[in-house]
Amino acid sequence: MEALFFEKLKEILEITDRELSANDKFKEYSEWDSLANLSVIAMIDEEFGVVIDNSEFKNIQTLGELMAEIKKRTK
């Protein structure tokens, strides 16, 4: 799951110059903005069949936390 998740994320955020890590505070990426936020929520819905509520999304800081939330909900 992690490989697919990172690959999709890089695609959406148009990140080509580095690898992503579970510890990344993704909202601090220079590529992060409201449109990126929308695209990520949509990607998670499309790839993993989970829609994360915005109120929950706000509390998530790292990619690891985001993946944990997806896993929790796909169970």
């Binding site: 409201s34 936020n37 929308l38 929520i41 949509a42 829609v51 915005n54």
Partner: peptide, 12 residues
């Protein structure tokens, strides 16, 4: 418009 709220609502 709270874009994320409305977006989530629209796709679910």
């Amino acid at each position: 418009m709270k874009g994320m709220d409305v977006f989530g609502f629209s796709i679910t």
